[in-house]
Design a protein around this nucleic acid. Structure first.
Lengths: 122, 122
DNA sequence: ATTATATATGAACAAGTGCTCACATGATAA
DNA sequence: TTATCATGTGAGCACTTGTTCATATATAAT
């Protein structure tokens, strides 16, 4: 019963037992770093919009730019970012380049995020 | 059959039908803005670590700082950020302040993100 | 070949972010 | 009260990020 020493933080940890237990069950730093990088991709309005669209249908850059009301240049830069994060793929057709999602996980993750947000909208 | 005019982007949209269909099914800008803000919270290594810990157990600031190997100040700043995002709650006990998760969604969202990351680790 | 269209990209820059440092606050101990 | 411990916070600063502007590339039309 000495794992909780109330009102005394002088030693290493206040609650050694709990801390050690937690320490052994969280993922390695390398993984958490990648995880943060992944969520970082979803943490920008423009990119979330892009993904929302591609969730429904593939689309070429020109249409995407018009639809989202962002400059073609800004969009291309963001698409490059998403490409590097391995979240989108593309195919060329004439002068156009069609982008689409590369992964199915994104769908459910964004959906979960949406339901989280929606709860606060009432 | 004129919703696809191949190799011609002169008009408003190349693929009007698809664009309009997509346009009506993506969430409002206000929601997408909040959604991005939410994912932004998960897009930082320190914050993801904090949440990973609180996923398992509540913890006081001192223990959390020691466990995650971050300065107490940096941690307090991040905890404030998480508080403002309404992701954590806290209770005071003597000199200590114990933080815990406020919401159950975060658990499943982080888990989904983790499985996404793990797939690329082989 | 020349022109127009669709996309990509480098440089520059403004805005945002996360840290440290110093100090403030609040509670307990001496 | 005074000292100590746990946490919070403002200011400053280095670093990152997302955009614009100009230009490059690549394909198709004239």
């Amino acid at each position: 019963m000495d794992d909780i020493k109330k009102n005394n933080c002088g030693g290493k940890f206040i609650h050694g037992k709990i801390v050690h237990q937690v320490q052994s069950s969280i993922p390695k730093d390398e993984i958490l770093y990648d995880l943060a990088d992944f969520f970082k991709m979803l943490g920008d309005t423009t990119r979330i919009k892009i993904l929302q669209v591609l969730l429904i249908s593939e689309m070429c850059v020109y249409d995407l730019a018009s639809l989202l009301n962002v400059s073609q240049s800004a969009l291309s830069h963001q698409l490059k970012t998403l490409r590097q994060a391995d979240l989108v793929k593309y195919r060329k057709e004439g002068k156009s380049v069609f982008y689409s999602l590369k992964d199915g996980h994104i769908n459910s993750i964004i959906d979960l995020g949406l339901t989280h947000i929606m709860e606060k909208f009432k």
